[in-house]
Simulated assay, not measured.
Amino acid sequence: MIEVIAEILRGPVFLAGETLHCRITLTNKLSDENDSTNNQETSEKISWASVQLHCQRYVNEQKVNLQQQQLSNSTALIATKGETGQTVYTSKPCVLFCDLTLQPGETRIFSYSETISTHVPPTFRGSYVKYSYKLTIGTQRVNHPTTLIRVPFRVLVVPDLDKFIRQDKAAIASSQTGITVDNPFVSPNRTEIDSLTTALDALQILTSRAHQHVYNITNNRGRVCRFTLFKNNFKLGEDITGIIDFDHTDVSCLQYTVTLQSEEILNQHYRRKSSQFPNLTSFTKQSEFCLSTSQTYLSLSIPLSCTPTFSVDLVSIRWKLHFEFVISKTPRSLLSTNNDPSTSTIWLPSSSIDVESMTWDLGIKILPTNPCFANNVAKVSCTTVATI
């Protein structure tokens, strides 16, 4: 009996362009560990073992028309054997060994590393489509069928990462020739490209606060409020902060709700019906009563488990802040002024107010974060144990 342990090092979340490292441990385990006799008879031979990364795409056929689209990425080892859906990405297969013999109780450890392509979709589970990544180990004992062992992992994609890598390469080449290039992504002492470092530097630049954005939210009777957002690009795990100002407005607002929402938009060429709308998913929400409030603050957290903004041929994911306002149809009555300091004025709101509602959407962009942070909320195990 051979026990195989496949473990993805550092955790199950990676950025596209990053190198994945895996440790594969094979142990010849006796059925009775106390029996040390007949060692020659209990040695085990394994013909071969191979490793490969792949991404499977699953679609809701009731809503998505692939128009007989064919994807061909087959190899000698069919790592996706037994999987449903279509294979949209496979790495080159790597042969770990051939003709391996393990004595009773013997353990052999093999290492595997592969750089994930930057031209891949992120891990995503939506209503129309799903993208799932797995590391597959194929192995075969002598006179036994082939066994496939799979370890799932998550991929996040940084937009335009290739552009930042090219900038790094150009800056490094220029520094080696003595030409000074002002590139914020490259340290003067760097001599080679580190995709993870480049991606994290790019994310820092893309999500930095450049200037605040001010929006006047109005309806046909005038201004409802003024909303200030400090930036439009955010990373997973960040807080979306802003200021909602109700001072000097034309319309009285009684209550507001802000919801962080994602939109799964199916390319119109693949829709079963032309009337298919984007699939909306709501995440964090903030709601407050604001009658007679001059100013309040917005703070919405972005879950680390979310899928960042992305767009591929089949589907795209966009993010927005969805505002809902409950506003009064009649002007707010003014309080009378009392100049007598010995008395006080008590104001009570009306028992019933004639109201109406309005909505307003603001698009934002959500980008990946450091994969080490996302590992903390990963729902998949980075270790798989199997017996062959």
Rank of each mutant, 00 (worst) to 15 (best):
S208L: 06
S208M: 11
S208E: 15
S208G: 12
S208T: 13
S208K: 12
R209T: 13
R209A: 05
A210L: 12
A210M: 09
H211W: 13
H211R: 11
H211V: 11
H211L: 11
Q212N: 15
Q212I: 08
Q212D: 15
H213E: 06
H213K: 07
V214Q: 07
V214L: 08
V214K: 09
Y215M: 09
N216D: 15
N216V: 08
I217R: 05
T218R: 13
T218A: 08
N219V: 07
N219P: 05
N220D: 15
N220K: 12
N220R: 12
N220H: 13
R221A: 05
R221E: 11
G222Q: 12
G222S: 10
G222C: 09
G222I: 09
G222M: 06
R223G: 00
R223T: 06
R223N: 05
R223M: 04
V224E: 04
V224M: 15
R226E: 10
F227T: 04
F227A: 12
F227M: 11
F227H: 08
T228W: 08
T228L: 08
L229F: 03
L229Q: 06
L229C: 01
F230G: 04
F230E: 12
K231Y: 03
K231G: 03
K231V: 03
N232M: 10
N232V: 07
N232S: 11
N232G: 02
N232Q: 14
N233V: 06
N233I: 00
F234G: 00
F234M: 04
K235W: 07
K235H: 08
K235E: 14
K235P: 00
K235I: 01
K235Y: 05
L236M: 12
L236G: 01
L236F: 03
G237A: 09
G237M: 08
E238R: 00
E238W: 01
D239E: 13
D239L: 05
D239A: 07
I240S: 06
I240R: 04
T241L: 02
T241F: 00
T241Y: 03
T241I: 10
T241H: 02
G242D: 09
G242Q: 06
I243D: 12
I243H: 03
I243A: 05
I243T: 15
I244L: 14
I244C: 04
I244E: 00
D245Y: 05
D247Y: 11
D247A: 12
D247T: 13
D247R: 14
H248S: 13
T249Q: 15
D250T: 08
V251N: 01
V251R: 04
V251E: 04
V251Q: 06
V251I: 15
S252P: 13
